[in-house]
C-alpha cells in the first residue's frame, strides 16, 4: 500500500511530488521562466528551488522600423523561494525510462 502511494499519480499534485529533488521547469506570470531543483512545495505551489536559472523575456518595439525585438535576460540564484500565486505551470524533468 505504501509503495503504491509513493508511485501512482492520482491527483495533479502527485506529479509534482514525484519531481522532488529533480530539476523542474516553472512558467510564471510576467513572462518569467525558472529551471531549478525542487526542494519543497505546498498546496499553493509555493516552492523552494535550488540552482535556479531565471529567464525573463521582454519584447521591445523598435522606434523606427516597428520591429519587435525579443530580449531574454538570464540570471542564476542559488536558492529561491517562489510564491505560488505567480505560477502558471510546472513541468517535471524529461524521463527517458
Amino acid at each position: 500500500m505504501a509503495s503504491e502511494e509513493e508511485s501512482t499519480v492520482k491527483e495533479p499534485l502527485d506529479l509534482i511530488r514525484l519531481s522532488l529533488d529533480e530539476r523542474i521547469y516553472v512558467k510564471l506570470r510576467s513572462d518569467r521562466e525558472l529551471r531549478g531543483k525542487l526542494h519543497a512545495y505546498d498546496q499553493h505551489l509555493n516552492m523552494i528551488l535550488g540552482e535556479v536559472e531565471e529567464v525573463i523575456t521582454t519584447v521591445e518595439i523598435d522606434d523606427e522600423t516597428y520591429e519587435e525585438i525579443v530580449r531574454t535576460t538570464k540570471r542564476i540564484v542559488p536558492f529561491l523561494f517562489v510564491r505560488g500565486d505567480g505560477v502558471i505551470l510546472v513541468a517535471p524533468p524529461l524521463r527517458t525510462a
Partner: peptide
C-alpha cells in the same frame, strides 16, 4: 512577494524534502 532569495546555508535540503512529503 514574487521571490525570496534565501541564504545558501539556510537551506537544509533533506529537512525540506521530509517536510514536503509529510505535508503532501
Amino acid at each position: 512577494v514574487r521571490y525570496v532569495q534565501l541564504p545558501p546555508d539556510g537551506v537544509d535540503v533533506e529537512l525540506l524534502h521530509d517536510a514536503t512529503r509529510r505535508e503532501a
